[in-house]
Design a protein around this nucleic acid. Structure first.
Lengths: 268, 268
DNA sequence: AATTAAATTTCGCCT
DNA sequence: AGGCGAAGTTTAATT
């Protein structure tokens, strides 16, 4: 009844296989470290950090080469059931039902997926060496300010970055044109209460250690209106800076300059 | 060159289609609110809260009925590129390249996926009304009530737990704020007739032994409608309680307990 | 609608 | 290996 379409050794496809035929595909994928794709009616038991039961319904099951498992419903960004990479799998067909069991240690977890009807089964090899480049991340904003300190304000001189202090890591740390210490907290998107409080904690820590006055500047594309008041109350400052602009600056700047800066900063 | 397998109106599958043929499937899925599955060589541009570029490689693209988009690589739990539900899509085939463009407002974001080779294309309808239950065990519900008796009602004080009486073991046994005895029967799922009758038997046994008035409370996420009448007839009460909520309470309590322990350990 | 808190968070980096 | 912080976090609950 199933129609077999093996387009190549990289792709096996079965449409409407019975559970035994599907089981073969599953074993092929798991044993040969291929990606498995299964679409059909299934139910799922999960037991581990929490526990869940998923009633029967038609879903998409994906098992990847790294031993991760995803069960996706017809809606939603997140999988309804899953297992992170590194699982060990077990498969069996009993009384017309295909069971796939994924287990991992640390933490001990188990996901069991049961299929009684499979619409599509496929084992495939995905050749993928392409690289993902993420731009305008928060780290890029750090770099941009180190590279072009006037982005923060005229005369600012960075001393260190990602410096460890009491509550965590300060994004950027330096002195202004008048020689006063400046702690900079950077957010890629609208700064909320958390960012302000975080900055306040750093300020407090640095004040205690240096026994000198310290300015705190929050850098973000914008700040929540109610948070603005909190900022002022705590005697902190805000500097609007667009991540996009940082990306452009980084693009213009040569990698060499950045490397040179870090080398110099390290020896300083 | 493509092999067409329309197993039913709910499932269209094309193996090794050209980009034009694949484009038809994409449009079918998008216009009819079906789930789209595309496997092939693609590259992706993302622009929105951040920005990213994904170099060419073989991946799995899923577009769901709710307008969410996922691009999965051969490894990893997370999609390499995605778009949350509510996107608007645009498709075109130009110079042998299939482009799918997903846009959403608030925040303004755009994901463009380009395919130049498609191994598998499918449009499908996933019938899925199954419910996901994420919960704690029945024993966890017992513990939660013992830990936080107000979950049952204000002023309740548990006396014993899993106490042996004539027909078996009572789940929880205590007194209410007026000093009246209370027998509690707990069910993790919808309470049925058996649960009510079980509770009635305990009540009877306790009444006979104590010769005092005894209240009976059935605790469950909900109760079957016809059973509700039986419950009232027998003079029993119902208290809705979600297993998930119990799990949360236990988790919080555990956290507090640990914090207390560490604090004590530190001072010791 | 905006904000806060949780998640079976996952993921990466550093100690 | 464990711990901490960030994420294009997403999602649910709450104001």
């Amino acid at each position: 009844m199933a129609e077999n379409l093996s387009a190549s050794s990289h792709l096996t496809v079965l449409v409407n296989p019975n559970t035994v035929e599907a089981g073969e595909i599953v074993r092929e994928a798991l044993s040969q470290r291929k990606t498995l794709l299964l679409i059909g009616n299934c139910w799922v038991h999960y037991l581990g950090r929490a526990r869940s039961e998923l009633e029967p319904g038609e879903r998409i099951l994906i098992i990847k080469e790294d031993g991760s498992l995803l069960v996706h419903r017809s809606v939603g960004y997140e999988p309804v059931n899953w297992q992170p990479p590194g699982c060990i799998f077990n498969t069996q067909v009993k009384e017309g039902i295909l069971e796939i069991h994924a287990v991992r240690r640390k933490p001990p977890e188990s996901v069991r997926v049961f299929f009684d009807k499979i619409h599509l089964a496929s084992a495939l090899t995905l050749a993928d060496s392409g690289e993902l480049s993420l731009y305008a991340s928060e780290e890029d904003m750090h770099k941009a300010i180190l590279l072009e300190p006037s982005l923060l304000e005229e005369g600012f001189k960075p001393i260190s970055y990602e410096k460890r202090v009491e509550p965590g890591f300060m994004d950027v740390y330096g002195v202004d044109k008048n020689g006063r210490f400046v702690v900079v907290e950077i957010k890629r998107k609208t700064a909320g209460k958390e960012a302000v409080l975080q900055l306040a904690r750093y300020i407090e820590a640095v004040k205690n250690r240096t026994n000198r006055e310290v300015r705190g500047i929050l850098v973000a594309p914008n700040i929540a209106r109610n948070v603005q008041r909190l900022l002022e109350t705590l005697g902190l400052e805000f500097k609007a800076l667009n991540p996009k602009k940082c990306a452009e600056i980084l693009k213009k700047a040569e990698t060499k300059r950045l490397e040179a800066f870090f080398k110099e900063a390290r020896t300083a």
